[in-house]
Amino acid sequence: EAQPSMMGGFFNQDTLQHRLQTLIEGAKESWTYAIFWNTSVDDVSGASLLGWGDGYYKGGDDKLSPPLPRRKTQSSAAEQAHRRKVLRELNSLISGVPNGGDGEDVVDAVDEEVTDTEWFFLVSMTQSFVNGSGLPGQAFFSSAPLWVAGGDRLASSSCERARQAQVFGLQTVVCIPLANGVVELGSTDMIFQSADLMNKVRILFNFSR
């Protein structure tokens, strides 16, 4: 039975976004983000690649809860200045207007603190995983979900992305392999394995079933 291309035909970015949003907003757990990593083959090397397909960022309690003692990993003033600069440049890139503004509201939004999880999500857009590397690659190549719950488990992972996730305040990262990619979910909460969630991902993202 033919599997449609995830990024082609009817499975375009709009439907992908809709599915990621449905997954997160409809979940009983509090997920911070969902990413779809799309599989492809590098034309030159022939290597298998998992690259950014699309993502939905909901956010966590890092902006909504009362101030907590700042984690040792919480960004410094210099790091915040860097993040804001990058965000301003990204706004320019998207809007096509120097300094990224279509009005004061955009400038104000850019000047708000860029949280650790927002930054982790943004950096994810530049990442890819070759031949089974990283949590998404491991999940895809083993055809088995990876569910890493707990800062300690993330921090001690052999995977750079998992360690990075812990540094940026995430407590749970899940990678669920599909025919043409991987759905990754992350949360600042500790969330234990749920068969319901994995079934929901497979129903939402496997069109041919």
Partner: peptide, 26 residues
């Protein structure tokens, strides 16, 4: 920003728009 390929632009634009909404509505 230079590391963000054209294909990511839609995701990025959506993220920035949602972020603006979150901050405006906070």
């Amino acid at each position: 920003p230079a590391a963000v390929p054209q294909a990511r632009k839609a995701s990025l634009a959506r993220f920035l728009e949602k972020r603006k909404e979150r901050i405006t509505n906070a």
